[in-house]
Structures are given as C-alpha cells and as structure tokens.
C-alpha cells in the first residue's frame, strides 16, 4: 500500500528553505552537513522523480532512483551556476532550493498522485538485535579512530629540512634561511652562509627540539651582477657538513 499525500513535498521545501538559511548565516559544519548532504544526495532527486511521475515498486528502488536523479540535478546545477558565475555555497543552496520548490510546485499543479512505496514494517525485531547493532556501530567507529591514530603515528623517515629562499621568494634584497627538525630527538647545529664564496653570516648552536622550526631573513647587498649565496649546516656534535643549500641573488 503506497503513501498518498504531498506531505513529502512540503517537507522537502521546508528542508530546502532551512538549508538556504543555514548556509547564509552559519559556518557550523554539523548543521550544514545535516541539511546539505541529504539535499544533494537524495531530496532533490526525490522531488524530481515526483515531478517526472516515475513510479517505483519498492523503497530501495525509489531511494536508488532518487539518488541518481539528485546526482544528475547536482551536475546540471554545476553547469548552470558556472554559466552564471555563482559557483559558491550560496549559489548551490539557491540552486537546490529552486529545483526543490519548482519541482514540488509542478507536481502539485499537475495533481500527481504520489503513490510512494510504503516503509517495510520489521517483524521479529528484538531489543538484543538493536543492542548488537549499536555495539557493532561503536566498534566500527572506534576502529576508524584507531586507524586515524595509527596513521598519525606513522613516521618512517627521520629528517631535518634545510632551505634557503632567493629574494624573488623571500622579499627584495633578502634571503630566507630555515631549518626544521623532524628527527625524534633534539638536534644542535652550526650554520654558515657565504655570498659568492665569501663568508657572510654565521649562526652557532642552533638548538631545535623535535618539530621545531628556525628561520631567519638575511639582508643581502645587491650588486650589478648576480651572486650565488650558499648555506651550510653543520652538526654541532661532530662539526661535519650535514646539509647545504644555495640561492641566486640577482644583479641590478
């Protein structure tokens, strides 16, 4: 026995209006996801199916068709919004509102009988079934959290980043030098900078804890010809050359 009414269309229009309001006034991801997700993936397709007058024989069939019609509606929306140059959150909200309200009005004007497939009534459902299902959901959610933690903990390579940016990136008449420690322990370095082979700056005993970043901007004299700046990083423990980087200082 199907459902014969247009309450679903009224609900869809209310949903679309609420979505437009929420997108316009709040950045709450939760609220916007609750309203926006079903609109893009299901509701707009449902009203389009109603407008088409396509009948389905079961709830899964109706839901599958509604998802397909929603996706097609979204794709059409992308083309229209792109043509109108409003491919923005508010543009999307307006598009889905227009589709939902427009298709609902069309269905109402045409006096289309909904004849939606009815929800199946579960018989034989017990409390322990529900509890088992809830525990399964908890385990699955927990497992996902575990996967995220494992991924965050993975650090196969231990390294120290060392860089020198030329004036074109660092700013006129200056170089930027940086060191970041991605080793699991504190590291100590000495740093030496040369300009066209001549000593230019020295930084001693740079101490970087795991995850620390040290940067410095160094003003450089600009000459008529290009100069090559080089920076060398030495480990303080053994004073051996550890890394070396370079940059071009353009001439005038």
């Amino acid at each position: 026995m199907g459902i014969h009414s247009n309450k679903d269309l009224s609900a869809a229009c209310a949903w679309a209006t609420a979505m437009v309001a929420v997108v316009a006034v709040t950045d709450s991801t939760l609220l916007r996801t609750i309203l926006g997700g079903p609109m893009v993936l299901l509701i707009s397709g449902h009203v389009v199916l109603r407008a088409f007058g396509v009948r389905s024989t079961s709830l899964p069939e109706h839901l599958a068709y509604a998802v397909g019609a929603s996706l097609a509606t979204g794709i059409a929306g992308g083309l229209v919004l792109n043509a109108l140059d409003i491919l923005t959150p508010l543009g999307w909200a307006a598009w889905f509102w227009i589709v939902t309200v427009g298709a609902s009005l069309l269905t109402t004007i045409r006096h289309e009988d909904s004849d939606l497939p009815s929800w199946p009534r579960p018989t034989g459902l017990r409390l322990w079934h529900g509890i088992t299902f809830a525990i399964a959901v908890l385990i699955t959610t927990g497992a996902y959290a575990l996967a995220v933690r494992d991924e965050a903990d993975q650090q196969q390579f231990k390294y120290v980043e060392f860089w020198m940016l030329p004036p074109v990136n660092a700013g006129t008449d200056r170089l930027t030098i940086g060191v970041r420690n991605a080793e699991p322990k504190t590291e100590r370095f000495n740093l030496e900078v040369t300009l066209s082979g001549r000593p230019f700056a020295i930084f001693r005993s740079l101490t970087l804890a795991p995850g620390d970043t040290w940067t410095r901007e160094i003003p450089v004299p600009v000459q008529s010809t290009a100069q090559k700046a080089e920076a060398r990083l030495y480990r303080q423990d053994d004073n051996r050359l550890y890394r070396s980087v370079s940059a071009l200082v353009p001439g005038t």
């Binding site: 579960p122 034989g124 459902l125 017990r126 322990w128 079934h129 088992t132 299902f133 525990i135 399964a136 959901v137 385990i139 699955t140 927990g142 497992a143 996902y144 575990l146 996967a147 494992d150 991924e151 903990d153 993975q154």
Partner: peptide, 28 residues
C-alpha cells in the same frame, strides 16, 4: 527476515573491520 542473523553478522563485520585496521596498524 531473520534479524538474529542480521544482528550477528553486523557484529561479525564490525569485528572483522577492527582486525583489518589492526592489520594496517601492524603494517605501519
């Protein structure tokens, strides 16, 4: 529908997915 079977299989699937996640963790 046998909801008993469905509930048990949901639980089995959840435990199976936990084992898969553990496998990835050990691999990492």
């Amino acid at each position: 529908t046998s909801f008993g079977f469905v509930a048990v299989l949901c639980m089995v699937a959840a435990i199976a997915l936990l084992l898969v996640v553990e496998g990835h963790g050990a691999g990492r």
